[in-house]
Design a protein around this nucleic acid. Structure first.
Lengths: 246, 246
DNA sequence: TTGAAGACTGAACACTGTTTATCTCGACCA
DNA sequence: TGGTCGAGATAAACAGTGTTCAGTCTTCAA
């Protein structure tokens, strides 16, 4: 009885067409101007039909954010193939992270900058990928420490978070065109990356510690129910964001 | 004939009440949820009335952004009074920048993170203040170089941009709650600031150069008419943002 | 053949920023 | 004092938004 299978295939096809339409609009005009009605028009369905595939507009963006993490992962993995030292690999991969922000500003915005959209929790489909990307980044730094590129006093997890935090700045500045015309965005990002790596090499004492046991962290957090387990790409569901709730 | 003066005073009073209402909503709920109708309700005017005081919703936010730069300026000036070295003063003032982002997230968002809102050009009222803040930040770094806290190879303007860029990351991560619960936002920001300062002390070669003559920069830029002279807080007017233009 | 389940739609609700025609009222001049 | 002019405020409308819901229509199993 292949009817159910066919049904599932059809549902998947429509789901994919919604995501395709959303992605087209989103890459072309930025995600703020992607509306349910525009998507509906593209796929030749009524706006209401979309709500039997995605619970809300944000859920469409959540799916696109997952796609974004896949794209970022691919780009980062491809970077630094020609490097010899682990420190150079760290540099090349985090430079790729910055490049991604400028090549795919709409994705980057969704994944790291914008409010409320990617509600990334342990339940989220892309959570495992995210965890893998993070641990990969940490282990590359660990290799650099083992090779002697970074001092042994460097905490690889803190260093990973620092590189990430440092490069979000130049990325946001680039996406939002916050420099004077004539000033070089890439040069600023390069300087920031160099300074951070130099700072790590200089062996600063870091105070950032990551919570190894999320359950404990959640239980101990003051706003445990809201905070859930947001990480890097994710934010908790802000209270009162859904307009039509009350 | 005091009628004109009284008229002007009344206009100013209504303008102020619009800004007060906008600020109240904006600090309480974030600026995304500030609507013309909500402001109108607060000041007991019709929504349309607001348009004889501000040309658009964004112009209200532009005024609030200017206010934000004043607040930031005050906070930064007050910081580091107890420091002895210029490097410590640099650290204290940029730490104040980060603190401002967490204490006044709505202002910070408006000033540095969000799209399209602060269209800050040379014509803008707050431009002079911004220029003064920037040159103050640069000269503090220059003092640190003169004192021997930073190597003489450090370009103070590049260093200022680097510190700014580095701290925007932790600020955005904090505003958007992008860490796992249990992880310490302030610790991450502190580590980033320490690493950047350590990197500067280590004497990296910067490639960022600032355009000293904005006119030339504008003329030379590919999209000169759109780019104008956006700086730090500012972004050019994005094409087609105003919905009712065409 | 019937009934249930699912997909889809049109219309509506409650919003948003902004524009326009209209009206009111105070100030000025004759 | 009476008339006129203009600034300021408004109601209503326009075009858009996300979302919900009652109803229709198709498909499929019993």
């Amino acid at each position: 009885m292949g009817t159910k299978e066919r049904h599932d295939r059809e549902r998947q096809a429509v789901t994919a067409s919604i995501l395709n339409a959303a992605r087209d609009l989103f890459v072309a005009e930025g995600y703020q101007s992607v509306s349910i009605r525009k998507i509906a028009e593209r796929i030749e369905y009524s706006p209401a039909a979309i709500y039997s595939y995605f619970a809300s507009r944000d859920d469409i963006f959540l799916a696109l954010a997952e796609e974004g993490f896949h794209r970022l992962d691919e780009k980062v993995r491809a970077a630094g193939a020609d490097t010899t030292t682990a420190v150079d690999l760290v540099r090349a991969r985090w430079w790729a992270f910055y490049e991604f922000s400028q090549e795919q500003p709409a994705y980057f915005e969704l994944m790291f900058v914008d409010r409320s959209v990617p509600r990334i929790t342990q339940q989220w489909d892309g959570f495992e990928l995210l965890q893998r990307m993070l641990s990969e980044a940490v282990s590359t730094i660990q290799r650099a420490i083992d090779e002697g590129g970074f001092p042994t006093t460097v905490n690889p997890n803190a260093a990973m978070h620092m590189l990430w935090a440092c490069l979000i700045g130049p990325a946001v500045i680039g996406i939002r065109h916050r420099l004077a015309s004539g000033e070089d965005y890439d040069a600023l990002a390069r300087d920031v990356l160099d300074a951070t790596i130099a700072g790590l090499k200089a062996g600063i004492t870091t105070s950032f510690v990551s919570c190894k046991c999320p359950e404990e962290g959640i239980a101990g957090a003051p706003d445990a129910d809201r905070a859930d387990f947001a990480r890097l790409g994710g934010s908790p569901v802000p209270a009162g964001v859904r307009r039509h709730e009350s």
